[in-house]
């Protein structure tokens, strides 16, 4: 096997064939589906969940994970927060000419491991190679198929007083990745929270009928995800600044750079809106899992007239939170 990816690895010929055989099939499965243009799979319910995401993260290896782990966990989480059981994944690689094959192997291994851990099967794949300077290392698209489980799921029936739960500290992923690039000269002893949440969230749905909605606050962070829920379902949500769990280190970097942790990406956190009388039960379930040990209630639904997210400051005043508007630039001074 070559040490570096060349354009010929993507031209569909002999090198593509070997790359797929030696790197992908080797890690992902018996390769029977590689004989066909599409994989043929069996599902257990006629209502399925479908989601897709491309991963373009930089650096591709970061404390707590890699683009490979992330590409599986990210799509698994999108299915899990939708209340579906993740079953199948496809993956599409876009690789830059010159990319080290050893790195590719590690990424594929990370994907295979995370898939095994979560119980999803990677059933189809694709590899394209682009010229040097037409990508930044490697990009991965994963598309996930999940099946809904009978009599289980999110009600989408919101009530005033519903609790807003976050499953742990926010901003860990954003800060871990940002500082891992090395450009900022900041070192932070924290890992990305990158993790698949399907087992934990399945447990929540198994035991609580009071779950209204679940979301994973990835790009755009906690604030943006909550704004979307508020707008989409026309509910007023209020969160308390002082209750939002943020690691000291994350706070420190945010202070240095002028970032707001509410808008930092997370890759192993869930937001769960749940009926008031079930909040403690859900918190208890979450805290049984390492991914949920810091789960807390951060706010409540306070109205059903206006799609709006409010933040209450420690002084007790409130302000509206919006979506992130424009990439966070470090402040001038």
């Amino acid at each position: 096997m070559e040490k570096f990816i060349s354009l010929a690895h993507g031209d569909g010929g002999e090198l593509s064939h070997r790359l797929i055989r030696d790197v992908f099939i080797n890690a992902f499965g018996d390769g029977n589906e590689a004989m066909f243009d599409a994989a043929s799979v069996i599902i257990s319910n006629s209502k399925i969940a479908v989601t897709t995401d491309s991963f373009v993260i930089k650096p591709i290896f970061f404390p707590g994970g890699s683009i490979g782990k992330l590409a599986v966990a990210g799509t698994v989480n999108d299915l899990a927060v939708s209340g579906a059981k993740p079953v199948y994944l496809t993956c599409g690689f876009i690789i830059e000419e010159g990319f080290p094959v050893a790195d590719l192997r590690q990424i594929v291994l990370d994907m295979a491991n995370e898939a095994r851990k979560t119980g999803v099967v990677i059933v189809a794949g694709d590899t394209k190679v682009v010229e040097r300077g037409s990508a930044d290392g490697v990009y991965i698209n994963t598309t996930g198929i999940g099946v809904y489980q009978p009599n289980m799921g999110c009600s989408l029936e919101f009530e005033e007083g519903d609790a807003i739960i976050v499953s742990g500290t926010i901003g860990d992923h954003g800060i871990a990745v940002l500082t891992a690039r090395g450009e900022l000269g900041i070192t932070v002893p924290i890992n990305s929270d990158c993790a698949s949440l399907n087992t934990m969230l399945d447990e929540v749905l198994q035991h609580s009928k009071g779950v209204r909605i679940m979301r994973d606050p990835t790009r755009g962070g906690l604030a943006t995800t909550l704004v979307e829920i508020a707008e989409d379902f026309n509910i007023t949500m209020k969160i308390n600044e002082i209750d939002v769990p943020v690691k000291g280190e994350v706070h420190g970097v945010c202070d240095l750079l002028g970032f707001d942790p509410l808008y930092l990406a997370n890759e192993g956190k869930a937001i769960i809106v749940v009926a008031e009388n079930e909040r403690n039960k859900v918190i208890d379930i979450l805290r049984e899992f390492p991914e949920g040990e810091n789960a807390v209630v951060i706010g409540t639904i306070i109205g059903k007239e206006k799609g709006q997210l409010l933040l209450e400051t420690p002084l007790g005043s409130k302000r509206i939170l919006n979506r992130l508007s424009g990439t966070m630039f470090p402040r001038i001074c």
Partner: peptide, 28 residues
Amino acid sequence: MCVGVPAKVVKKNEYSAIVDVMGSQTTV
């Protein structure tokens, strides 16, 4: 007009120092 952040000096060189802000470190 310029917020500053209090940071603790953990290592001192001639013209620069490593400082700690709640567990994150950087050179100033």
